[in-house]
Design a protein around this nucleic acid. Sequence first.
DNA 1: CTAGATGTTAAGGT
DNA 2: CACCTTAACATCTA
Length: 263
Amino acid sequence: MPELPDVQVFKKYVDATALHHRIRDVTVSADGLLDGVSARTVRSRLEGHELAETRRHGKHLFVRVTANGWLRLHFGMTGELAYFKEEADLPAHARLWLEFTNGYHLAYANVRKFGEIGLVDDVDAFVEAEGLGPDALGLDRGAFREALAGRRGAIKGTLMNQAVLAGLGNVYTDETCFAAGLDPRSRTEKLDDATIGHLHHAMRKVLAQAIDARVEMDRFPRSFLLPSRATDGACPRCGKALRRAKISGRTTYYCPHDQERKG
DNA sequence: CTAGATGTTAAGGT
DNA sequence: CACCTTAACATCTA
């Protein structure tokens, strides 16, 4: 479920495993996932080089290739990474995998074809050209208020809009609204400053907690909504039944008792 | 068998 | 014009 916290965990994973090894071989099996590059170009840009550092903006992961720009990975709804030694451990639906001279492999796998693999020369230029908003973890309260200014409609939709701020998807938008005690149907244009401040605080806390838990469900704080979606559907705060509704086009879970409509 | 799933985006609407 | 909403995309699972 790759939203900002998941991608941040992938980033740390690459940092801890796959950097500074010479790439001996590259395999691309990514029909339809390649964004503006051929498999041949991806191979030639990577082979013989090393992965040097990583960056993340929203749900995009960038991995710098020594002297050769950045590999860009987007995980769509089902993308993941795996670092492993034996070829037998190659994940199902691997779309791109590198073999390093130390004998290990790094694979990008994706069941569905909603992700993207690309090459970019300049990360900031890419973010600009794509029209991505500021990273959800990299903006303070003032910048958050600024980002929401002029936006209309349900706060749920505003928070999920990558042009407003980059990184929140369906799950963490619900989690943020729950942590803030705010009804996800509240109109963005009608929220007062104090509410927006609370929302910003809740968002940062939720994202940090999810990353600390390495996005493993059983490590999440008890206060989180996410595990209840899959289990009994009871609010972790008051125990009453969560409501499930279609808001801003996505299935949304919230607690009618604990989340107040403000706008 | 059908419906729905974490994401993005084209097309249509306000 | 700028922004919002909806449906569709590919594939798997409940």
